[in-house]
């Protein structure tokens, strides 16, 4: 243990929802940091939006009401336009590991630092999310054309993509999804598997698109820059060095989600739909114009859009 004469530091961490796989890296981070500083640097995790609503976490960070928070870029795309590059459809991210790699690299980009810097925030680590595949009720879609005219719950970029193949994105809140599918308000919804489980979509679903992999969301853990800069060197060191073990722990926990996911699909009798490579390639082409439109919009806003997108694409193909 290191000798430190710094005063004890407590950071409040603003989280929404309950403790779950999605927050396990923050739990681990707190544990590691505490162990490395003999409990002198405490991360106090506050769940259930006790400190802020999820959509206002960046606001809370900006004026220093709390020092750390988890955010999702898609909850407020115009607060953090640079992060939304990783929410574009069909980037081809293989797995969570690759998503960590590309996310960490993105956070190093000056444009991203400046973007988050407007909120006095910096990204510490990602909360990588699996691909947002569709689960739905009724006839199993044997081809991508089958989505034509289908009412689906899909937000943002995935919604645009589905619109491009004739689907009808329909407003439904996450917690209403089960009832909405059950009653036919929408026929399918896109979530990551753990969300399909927690919103009980699997219980009403007849099918799940195993390899559509249209995209995902970008949810970093961010810290207040001033609070970070004010940390004594050894605390800063303790925090930085805890990111890797935290993410490793996160990946382990997520594997356990899949240990539940596959048997659940089996027991609910959910058909796993696999589309052919040609079909997926044709589908992925629909993403081209969406990428181009994103680059154009962000460039107009003064972000190096093309540069960011190219960086992402090269990192993924490495």
């Amino acid at each position: 243990a290191t000798e430190t004469f710094a005063a004890d530091v407590t950071w409040n961490v603003s989280l929404w929802g309950k403790r779950r796989a999605f927050t396990e890296h923050v739990e681990k981070l707190a544990e590691e940091v505490s162990a490395k500083t003999d409990g002198k640097f405490e991360l106090k995790l506050q769940y259930g939006e006790a400190l802020s609503k999820s959509r206002e976490n960046l606001d809370g960070i900006s004026f220093g009401a709390f020092e750390m928070a988890q955010i999702c870029a898609s909850y407020h795309p115009d607060k953090n336009p640079s992060l939304t590059v990783l929410e574009l459809p069909f980037l081809g991210v293989k797995d969570l590991k690759e998503e960590i790699k590309v996310s960490m690299k993105l956070y190093e980009q000056p444009a991203v630092k400046e973007d988050l810097g407007r909120w006095n925030a910096m990204a510490l680590m990602p909360s990588p999310m699996p691909q947002y595949n569709f689960a739905g009720k009724g006839d199993v879609p044997d081809s991508i054309e089958a989505f034509n005219g289908m009412r689906v719950r899909a937000l943002g970029g995935i919604g645009q993509l589905m619109e491009a193949v004739g689907a009808v994105p329909t407003s439904v809140t996450a917690s209403e999804t089960y009832q909405a599918i059950d009653s036919g308000t929408v026929r399918a919804a896109s979530f990551a598997p753990h969300a399909h489980l927690s919103f009980k979509v699997v219980e009403v679903a007849d099918w799940w698109t195993k390899n559509l992999n249209p995209g995902t969301v970008q949810c970093p853990v961010i810290v207040n820059i001033d609070a970070y800069e004010a940390l004594p060197d050894d605390f800063k060191q303790a925090l930085d060095s805890s990111v890797d073990p935290a993410l490793a722990h996160y990946l382990e926990t997520y594997d356990k989600v899949y240990e539940k996911w596959w048997p659940e699909l089996e027991s609910q009798g959910v058909t796993q739909v696999e589309f052919s490579d040609e079909e997926l390639a044709a589908f992925a082409e629909k993403a081209g114009p969406i990428h181009a439109a994103w680059v154009e919009e962000q460039t107009a806003n003064g972000l190096p859009g093309q540069e960011l997108l190219d960086m992402v694409k090269t990192t993924i193909s490495e």
Binding site: S52, E56, G60, A65
Partner: peptide, 11 residues
């Protein structure tokens, strides 16, 4: 003040 000021709209 800023924290309290987010609540009326947010909630």
């Amino acid at each position: 003040l800023k924290m309290a000021g987010t609540i009326p709209h947010s909630k």
